[in-house]
Design a protein around this nucleic acid. Structure first.
Length: 299
DNA sequence: ATTCAGGTGCGAG
DNA sequence: CTCGCACCTGAA
């Protein structure tokens, strides 16, 4: 029995499905470059959930091996989610016309922009505000295990808007949300009531979607840009956090201090529709640097 | 004990 | 409209 279309993009055997990848796609970098928080990455791959099921994914010589999904629809959904069809080779070619990125991309190659669930992405980045990585992950883990559906294998589904809209502030605070608890519940209520429809965002203009997001409690420019970039496919978004600000000031402004606004403007004119990709490479590289050592001098 | 961390919402000038 | 400041909380 053959499925011609499916066969081009995946092969199956013994509970494993292999999704075809195009070089230079790099799964671990894609999952670790700061866009998604809930995948548990280990040496070989990552464990998490997709489409309501516990899933394991690993990058192998043949492609992305997937355990836990069988339905064609889910597998195509996963392709899209992971950004497997992004034309990374040509994107990185373009990026490397920039002298700074020409030095960086060889170290960060293979990062793909994902297409995450808007709701989960929005809540995740509201929580990320003035916070640190371990605690963001802690909050998300508590939020899902307390309010989400258990899917087995230590994995929980992300709680929907209705679920969080009905939560008490006290219970939300138990997830170490701190002062962000009212923001999370406020957004949950707006979405649950239908007053805000997150799915409409990807059909709106970049500016319109951004305006809509900025009106939400706990959502400023940085969080709005993250949602646009990681969940709405707005490639021109350029989230400016402290790391990216540091990177741009150091490598493009000769170490001069600037404002987030100037950096936005710089990114727009310099990278245009690829600003989001440029941001990811800069962010990943400067963070790796920071984690790897204490060297101040860059290349 | 003190400090820091992937911003945002405020009020004041 | 820009600028400065407080802010929950867990980990170092």
């Amino acid at each position: 029995m053959t499925f011609p279309v499916a066969h081009e993009r995946l092969t199956r055997s013994a509970g494993v499905v292999i999704l075809a990848v195009r070089p230079p796609y790099h799964l671990i970098r894609t999952l670790q470059c700061g866009q998604a928080f809930r995948w548990r990455v280990d040496g070989a791959g990552a464990a998490g959930m997709f489409s309501g099921r516990p899933v394991r994914i690993e990058q192998t010589a043949g492609g992305i091996a997937v355990w836990g999904l069988t339905a064609e629809k889910d597998l195509f959904g996963l392709r899209r989610y992971l950004g497997l069809d992004e034309p990374l080779a040509s994107i990185e070619d373009r990026l490397q016309r920039d002298p700074v990125l020409r030095r960086i991309v060889p170290h960060t190659s293979g990062i793909a922009l994902m297409r995450q669930d808007q709701w989960e992405c929005l809540v995740s980045f509201i929580i990320s505000a003035f916070n640190n990585m371990p605690k963001i992950e802690l909050s998300l883990a508590r939020l899902t295990s307390r309010f989400g559906d258990p899917l087995g294998e230590g994995v929980w589904g992300f709680p929907g808007p209705q679920r969080l809209a009905g939560a008490s502030l006290a219970d939300l605070r138990r997830c170490a949300l701190g002062y962000r608890a009212p923001y999370v519940r406020g957004v949950a209520r707006l979405v649950a009531s239908g007053e805000v429809n997150l799915h409409e965002l990807q059909h709106m203009s970049h500016a319109g979607a951004r305006r809509t997001l900025l009106a939400l409690p706990g959502v400023g420019e940085k969080v709005a840009d993250c949602v646009l970039l990681f969940a709405c496919g707005s490639g021109e978004a350029f989230p400016v956090d402290v790391w990216v600000k540091r990177a741009v000031e150091r490598w493009y402004f000769h170490g001069r201090r600037t404002t987030a606004r100037q950096i936005q403007e710089f990114a727009r004119s310099r990278f245009g529709p690829l600003a989001g990709y440029a941001q990811q490479h800069l962010f990943y590289y400067i963070r790796e640097r920071g984690n790897a050592g204490t060297r101040e001098r860059e290349y």
